[in-house]
């Protein structure tokens, strides 16, 4: 269970990106976060694993207060929370398998990392993760040699190395074409259904949220605008979230 209480984020320049957000997310839920760009989706996701430190409020996950964790505790917590990104955030010059194994760093003795050593079982684990997302044959290619969809699958394999209980996905398909988008979303669905991961996924398109999520959260100017089932979003709600002029587009 993830509980977010009175979460507020004010950036150093004084901009309030999140305004008193309250949420309760039970384990195993697939939550879509929608909203216009600039509405605070990325900020919300990054506050959960504290890539951004919240200004106020608490985030409690399985009884642990993430917002109060010390650096060491935070690293322990982060190991259990995977994250994938719109820009994939791979090291482009490194090989695919190195990128994937890097997801395991939180478990590895830091002294090994100084000499760039991974125990053999971690290499096997990385190959298995790549197998799962269907690109084991690319393991020794440079990450930059892969297509966008493949790179995002490498990103997913990297989080698999963490053996996560929760996955934060920040617009994971926004840089991909529609067909590839669906294939990546299918992997997230698989992780949600097979591994029971809680998934928080910000999305640009409502149609994707409708197709994959159990629950939709909408942000507008840093405030919680809507929290409910995907099918509850009718035309009126849609215009509240996206503005009067918006028209819903389908993505197939």
């Amino acid at each position: 269970m993830l509980i977010i209480e009175n979460l507020t984020k004010i950036y150093d320049n004084g901009f309030m990106a999140l305004d008193n957000i309250n949420l309760e997310i039970p384990d195993g839920q697939f939550v879509a976060i929608i909203g216009l760009s600039g509405s605070g989706k990325s900020t919300l996701l990054r506050c959960i694993n504290r890539l951004i430190d919240p200004t106020k409020g608490r985030i409690i996950w399985n009884g642990i207060d993430i917002t109060a964790a010390t650096d060491d505790e935070l690293r322990q917590i982060r190991r259990r929370i995977g994250m994938i990104f719109q820009q994939f955030n791979l090291v482009k010059r490194s090989s695919v398998i190195t990128n994937v194994m890097a997801g395991r760093l939180g478990y590895i003795n830091p002294l090994f990392s100084l000499v760039n050593y991974f125990p053999p079982q971690e290499k096997a684990r990385a190959l298995a993760a790549l197998e799962r997302v269907g690109i084991a044959d690319k393991a020794y290619n440079r990450a930059s040699a892969l297509s966008g969809g493949q790179q995002q699958r490498v990103g997913i394999a990297r989080t698999l190395m963490q053996e996560p209980e929760m996955l934060l996905a920040d617009e994971p398909v926004a840089s991909l074409d529609p067909a590839t988008s669906h294939s990546v979303m299918k992997y997230l669905e698989l992780l949600n259904q097979e591994d029971g991961l809680t998934i928080l996924c910000s999305l640009h398109f409502l149609s994707l949220a409708r197709a994959y999520s159990d629950r939709v959260i909408a942000l507008k100017d840093g405030k919680l605008e809507f929290d409910g089932l995907p099918q509850e979003i009718d035309n009126e709600r849609f215009k509240m979230i996206y503005g009067e002029d918006a028209v819903e587009v389908e993505i197939h």
Binding site: I77, R78, R79, M83, N89, V91, L105, G106, R158
Partner: peptide
Amino acid sequence: GPIEALQSTGANRLQ
């Protein structure tokens, strides 16, 4: 991007 990604996995600063 990669810095953010590795931080989110629980890697420490040196890693």
